[in-house]
Each structure stands twice: as C-alpha cells, then as structure tokens.
Nucleic acid binder design. Structure first.
Lengths: 222, 222
DNA sequence: ACCAGCCTTACGGTTTCCCGTAAAAAACCC
DNA sequence: GGGTTTTTTACGGGAAACCGTAAGGCTGGT
C-alpha cells in the first residue's frame, strides 16, 4: 500500500475523515506534515518531499478552497494545484475528493490531468475513498458510481457563453454585437446573436431568454 | 455534559468527524443508534427515545439531504426535521451543521425554530462544533463567527419568489396571474406582476428580466 | 360617514424581443 | 472560374415586455 500520502483539504471536518480512513482502515502512517489546509502549502510539501528524495506517491485534494482571510494565495483551487503538482512531479497519483458531483468534471480532469480517481462527497463517500485508493494502488482509475451523469443536450461555444453572459449582465440583445466587438471576441451581427439564442432555446427547450438564463445558471454553464 | 446526542447527517465523511468530536474530545458516549443518515430515521429515533423515557438532549443535523435512490422520504431536509422534532419534543436542543454559510439562514432558524447553534462547514468547523456544544450546554446560543453576512438589498416575499420561479420556468408574464391562481398562491392581476418585477429590478439594479433571473439563481434565492 | 393615503388594476403607447423571409457573403466542390 | 451549398446579414411584421397615467378599492384615522 502507499507509504506517503498528502491531503489538501481546507475543511477540518472533511480532512479528519480522510485521515481516519488512511490511518485506521488502510494503516497508512501520516505525520502532521501530511495534511494541509491550503494549496500553496500543499505544493510546497510536494516539492520539498521531492527534493528530499522521498516524493509523495498520492495527493488527495479538494477542488474548492475558501478564500483566506489575510493573504491571497498563489494557487486558490484544487484544479490549479493538480496542474502545478503534475508539473513538478508528473508521476504523482491524484485522488480528487470534492462536493462537485458531476461526471463531466471528473472526466475532464482525467483527460486533461490524468487524475487517478474522483470521489464526490456524498452518501457513500467513505467507502468510495477506500475503494478508490485501493484501485489507484493497483494502477486502475476509479470513478465513483455515485457521480451524477448530466444529460448535456447542447454544447456551448465560447460565443454562446459570451452572449449568455452579456444577457445575464443586463445587456439588451441589440447591444450585444457591440459588446462582443469591444471585448474582441467576435464580430457578429445582431441577426447572428438572435440566431444563436434561438438555437440554444430550441435545443434546450426554453421558451424565452429568462428560462435560458435560468437553465445556464442552474448548471454553472456561466 | 450532554449524555444523549443524535446526529442526522447523510455524508459519512461529515458524520464521522462529528462523532469523533463527541466521543474523543467531549467524552460523550454514542451507540450506533445515535447517528443516522436520513431524516425519517432521525425522527423515529427521537420519538422512540422519548417513549422509552430517555429523550435525546441534543440533535445535531445537516440541512440538505440527498434524495435517496429507492424510496421517497417523508422528511427530506433538515429544516423539516427540526420542525418535526420540536413538535414531538419541544425542549430538545438543536445544532445545525451545514454547508450553507449565510447568517440570514442561521438567524431565521433561531427565530422560527429556536435552534441553539449554527455551525457552517468550513475552515474552522471542528473547533466551532466543540465551542458550540459547550455553549449550548451552558444554555447559550452559538452562532459561528465564520458565518457570512450577506448584503441583502431586497427581501423577497413568497409572491416575488413565485413570480421569479414561473419566469425562470419559461412562462410569459401574461400567463403568470393564471399560474399563480392555479397554484392558489395569490390572486393578482397582470399589472401587479409587472409592478413587482419592476420593483425587484429597481431594487437590485437589474435592467431586464434575464439579469434578474441570473441574480436570483446566483444567490440561490430560487 | 368622510377623507387621505396606499395598493391594485386597467389601458395605451413605446421599446424590446421573437421569428420568418430574402438578399448578400463566404465556403466548398468540381 | 462557375455553380452549389451553407453561413451570415438585413429588414419587417407581430408578439411580448416595459412604463407611464388614471381610475377603482381597501384601510385606518378623525
């Protein structure tokens, strides 16, 4: 089993549970330098361990970290931490443990960063964690069965998102072509804006713009 | 210190941490009937303990519970659980432990249900839990210092929310008076709907409905 | 009962949005 | 280059939303 594991998780209530799993169930020894509450410290520990010739084998990390009261961290989220960690030590295994319960996010992290497991916080999270770590150790990739599959019926281009965002910011659609030009995103006519909106509404079965905005906000598309 | 405490929390990772606090730090004995993963079971335990003449002194509960795979629970959220628990046993103390980090929610629960403490999951949640339980035992009410104060610039009536919801569901505002009537929320004319929308937009500085919807979705008002 | 103040409603005019059609432009294929 | 298809744009009619104003209704106070 793994000998050296780092936990990056800012909520003590979650951190403690992960530690408990590792120590009590998997009999992995943790020192008090093996769990940290922010990304910068996490990356520091990874680099130091690497320098010392005792690199971490596994990083267990959250995705969202609350902004801290005093100082502004260099890395403020788990995604960037994973990216930085892989840059320093490409062979480090990564397990993501997050409240975000979306299969699309998990898949994206697997394909873009090669993470080895994704466990959403939820009904069966403790069991999932145990299974995930065991799977990673065997060289497998673990995706929790509890991940919610979302029916992505339409995929949004950057232009689509920009239009939605401007609309959600209170612009009238007549102004949107100008805004897009100023933001140097694209140079399109009003008709194209209307057309894209129409397409999105049709694809997502929305009868008007407010409903479309609600839909996109709901799924964090914007 | 408390002798009999019930934990209602559906995420094992959170439940374990709460148990750890109670058992290891506060030396409170828990049996395996003292922590449950859904509201219905929680209420059952409270009622049974009351019948047996050994009522729970303290309920520690989450607010949101994931919908379960198979059966549909009678109570599906912490708020209703608190309400039902207080109805059965009005002197039970309540500590809410939730990801929702809003002072307004905490205050509302204090004034409407007389909860005794509110601890948001976060940076200092373990310490907060300890302090909260100690405070409750001394008869005090505990509100975490980490609760986020939100600049509520407008407070939404039930009617407001209903209108916004219908709009976000794709109804045109001409249809909304009928919908409201059918849902037997209120019997208002189209003009009133327009007026309320206007008021909300003015108060929240929104130039049109899409922006208003975005605002409300953003802050989970609907 | 009367008045004043506030809320609701009704209605008309203006703006914005929605949707079709057709012209123009661009891309594509011999 | 000529011809076809697809995309983009322009324009106009109709629907919905927006915003006044004025009339009607309810409430509380004297």
């Amino acid at each position: 089993m793994f000998k050296k594991v780092l936990i990056a998780e800012d909520y003590p209530s979650a951190s403690i549970s992960v530690r408990k799993i590792l120590e009590e169930d998997l009999k992995i020894k943790l020192s008090d330098t093996d769990y940290v509450y922010d990304c910068d410290t996490a990356l520091g520990r990874i680099k130091k361990a690497l320098r010392d010739g005792e690199p971490y084998e596994l990083l267990i990390t959250d995705l969202s970290f609350d902004e801290e009261a005093n100082h502004t961290p260099t890395i403020d989220n788990g995604r960037d931490l994973i990216s930085a960690a892989k840059a320093s030590q490409s062979d480090i295994k990564v397990l993501v443990f997050s409240v975000e319960n979306k299969a699309s996010i998990a898949k994206e992290l697997v394909s873009n960063f090669g993470i080895n497991a994704y466990v959403p916080k939820g009904r069966r999270d403790m069991q999932d964690l145990k299974d995930a770590i065991a799977d990673i150790y065997k060289g497998r990739t673990f995706l929790s069965k509890n991940l919610r599959q979302e029916e992505r019926t339409y995929d949004f281009t950057e232009l689509d998102k920009a239009i939605i965002q401007l609309l959600a910011a209170g612009k009238k659609q007549k102004e949107i072509p100008d805004c897009l030009k100023k933001m140097s995103i694209k140079d399109v006519g009003l008709s194209s804006v209307e057309k894209r909106l129409h397409q999105m509404r049709a694809a997502l079965d929305c009868s008007n713009n407010p409903q479309l905005i609600a839909y996109c906000k709901e799924r964090n598309i914007i």
